[in-house]
Nucleic acid binder design. Sequence first.
DNA 1: TTCCTAGTTTGCAACGTTGCAATACTGTCT
DNA 2: AGACAGTATTGCAACGTTGCAAACTAGGAA
Lengths: 346, 346
Amino acid sequence: MPNVRLRDVAERAGVSVRTVSNVVNDFAHVAPATRERVHRAIDELGYRPNFAARQLRQGRTGVISLVVAEIDSPYFAELASVVVRVAESRGWDVHIDQTDGDPDRERRMLSGPLGQQVDGVIFSPWALAPAELTQRAPSTPLVVLGERQAHGQVDHVAVDNVAAAHAATAHLIDSGRQHIVAVGLQPHLSNETALLRQRGYHRALAAAGRSPDPRREIAVERLHRSDGAQAVARLLQDGTTFDSLFCFTDQLALGAIRALADQGLKVPDDVAVVGFDDIEDGRYAVPSLSTVAPDKRQIAEVALQLLEHRIQDPAAPVVDFVAAHELLIRQSSSPVTINPRDAGVS
Amino acid sequence: MPNVRLRDVAERAGVSVRTVSNVVNDFAHVAPATRERVHRAIDELGYRPNFAARQLRQGRTGVISLVVAEIDSPYFAELASVVVRVAESRGWDVHIDQTDGDPDRERRMLSGPLGQQVDGVIFSPWALAPAELTQRAPSTPLVVLGERQAHGQVDHVAVDNVAAAHAATAHLIDSGRQHIVAVGLQPHLSNETALLRQRGYHRALAAAGRSPDPRREIAVERLHRSDGAQAVARLLQDGTTFDSLFCFTDQLALGAIRALADQGLKVPDDVAVVGFDDIEDGRYAVPSLSTVAPDKRQIAEVALQLLEHRIQDPAAPVVDFVAAHELLIRQSSSPVTINPRDAGVS
DNA sequence: TTCCTAGTTTGCAACGTTGCAATACTGTCT
DNA sequence: AGACAGTATTGCAACGTTGCAAACTAGGAA
């Protein structure tokens, strides 16, 4: 009998439907005896409030959703995990939705059925243009993670990608690396995050009086480990000289390290590698991976706070929050003590 | 104006509410002219069907959910990703929900609001006892992944853990390893999966005429990399001799490899390592990780098929499906060609 | 012309819940 | 005794949709 209704409980307890509703919702003025009787009827019948009816009536669900492109990408998985925990602690239930970077599905998450099942959405866009995000004004409250936003149009949380990439590159320069390759451009996606990291990389080079070299800026299709491995393969094949890699994600970096190992190149001795994201794999990789660590906890907390704010007051001014990050230097880019030669590869 | 209703569209198009509903639902007998007019009104007003009302009326949502303990565990993340893609291709939308292994939250996913927002649940239980799963008969259609089930009470998909663990252990024996340590028991959780893998390990030992040794069976708190690293630390500290590890998950194995590297032990030369799950990290790790690969695609497809079946016919007989697996031998356990000594560690 | 059929459109009711506001009850105070 | 305050309980309507079955239209067959 999945269909026990308020009405059935009411009949059984000998009270009105409304009284049962009052009991269920902990309304103040219910006589203890009545409350007791209703509770017993509820237990006996196994009553469960119908969620759809409730939502229809009051227009709220108590659920928010987190929309990401790929849940099997460790950065998103780890971030999702934190978001769920933070939200849980504040009384929200959380759905995670995966779009595979498909624009249709991204759209659907915002305005389709799934967007309607929730009171708000934390969204890490991939394919959807900023314009689309903002013109859907009438829809669900929204907070955007990562770059790719229409500045000042939607609440937004991200690290300072330029500064972070600058720091990572500067660290390689300071450790005496001469030929630093940037891995992770995505010209085909007009991926704003990649552009910002590239800019930070350029600025660090410029600050050291070096000029960028197109051969040392590698584009990738996606951001998986295989793309990082391919990037290294291409470098070696083209005969480009390099002694260090700044990879725009840890996954790229781990794939690159793997490819380097296959070629007998040592990390960090021959090639230093720095990634971005601080995923767990990197901490336990051999060698452990230097990386830029965004403060995931802060990102999750602020995103949720902004979303709650937005739900409460849809007209509040838009917030653009810059989350903290930290450069973690581990083995993959530690200064080489013995034989610190300028290990080139032709 | 988020509140455009069927009624508003009807007024604008000069037809009845019912006709608009017919158009929205692609009912056959609607005059082309009318349909056209209604569509225009819909576009002009930006009408979106109210999902809650629809669900209330027809009792279906078109959404299923996948409930896992930890979405940041790569195995679950990868599996989730596949499930979402398969479901998507069959016209379902999918929510992913994370419980952190909290029994309350696991329960809530099944019978609480979230359970009601969906037509069915694919559930990878952690803390919830089998009994609880089955006694909630009146609730959402359910398919259980992984072991820990009440056999024959709920539809269920899992690999043959005993056979898989047997194969992994036998492989180590066949490559000449003498002291094989099993890492990943979880006595505190009565984790059935771990028990089955332990059984397979025992049987392989027995088949080779060896007897199990409690010192070579390491319990862990959780299944993270850090637990694998700790297990190795404990072995070394206790002075237990070993030349190979069979880790019950890839994460444990990767943590173990990391700890071995820190101690200057070479994999596979000094210690061979085999994991379980075939997560992407293992494929790109240095050295690449040998592992038991469950057929995730098959698991996802069968689980979904069973769920659809169950939704359609709640009274159908219960199915227990054994998914395929494969032992993938990579670098971490490849027979050592040069100097294949029995590298012991005291 | 009338009847019938197929095509088109519609009104009514109901899904299960809660907001609103009215009513009934109890006891206290004047 | 009557008025009043507060507590307890209730009926009605509405949230936005779709199932049902009736009603209306036109066109062709009898």
